[in-house]
């Protein structure tokens, strides 16, 4: 076993230990915690979660892929999420997403090939008053226009390039 694998296993075990009841009902909570730890859900992590909860790996995989919040592919460093909720939609959110997809060449749900940015959409984050909005690495930007978004993302990715 390689060193990273060994530490990964340790990290998975640490997450699982938060759920001492071995209760299958904790599966989704565990998947959240594992994803927070690794940014995405690796096969190893899912296999271990399955063994820990006594569930068939196929069920764990089925559950993981059922929810749009979980990712089984490596994820990028940054995340730009366009709110596509109804309130934002009627205020022009689709144009924002199109712009973002054009700027990054990645469709919603995808990640740029250099793993710098994830392009995401979400349905309402409860800040409809300032829609349409975009969330860049956890920071919400309200009253967005396609142009503002373009600048925001270009700036972020340019800074990346320079580092």
């Amino acid at each position: 076993m390689s060193e990273t694998q060994a530490t990964d296993t340790g990290r998975v075990a640490a997450v699982l230990a938060r759920y001492p009841r071995h209760d299958p009902g904790d599966l989704v909570n565990i998947l959240h915690d594992l994803q927070a730890e690794f940014r995405y859900l690796t096969e190893t992590a899912l296999q271990e979660a399955a063994a820990y909860l006594g569930l068939p790996p196929a069920q764990v995989y089925g559950v993981t892929t059922f929810y749009h919040g979980f990712h089984t592919e490596p994820r990028g460093e940054h995340t730009c999420t366009v709110c596509m909720g109804t309130a934002c939609h009627v205020r022009g959110a689709p144009r924002l997403l199109e712009q973002l997809e054009r700027d990054t060449g990645v469709a919603a749900g995808g990640t740029t090939p250099d793993l710098s940015l994830n392009v995401e959409e979400v349905s309402c984050v409860g800040a409809c008053a300032i829609g349409p909005l975009v969330i860049l690495d956890g920071d919400t930007h309200g009253h967005m226009t396609a142009d503002d978004l373009s600048r925001l993302v270009t700036k972020l990715l340019d800074n990346e390039g320079r580092e």
Binding site: D23, P24, G25, D26, L27, V28, N29, L31, H32, L53, L55, Q59, G62, V63, F66, Y67, H68, G69, F70, S123
Partner: peptide, 26 residues
């Protein structure tokens, strides 16, 4: 507290029960 995983259908009662039991929210 149980967190959803990003599925609108889990707001439906029987799907929510499935989700709370660690199954697909169908």
């Amino acid at each position: 507290v149980s967190r959803g995983g990003g599925a609108f259908v889990c707001g439906e009662a029987s799907a929510m029960m499935a989700s709370l039991e660690g199954r697909r929210g169908v």
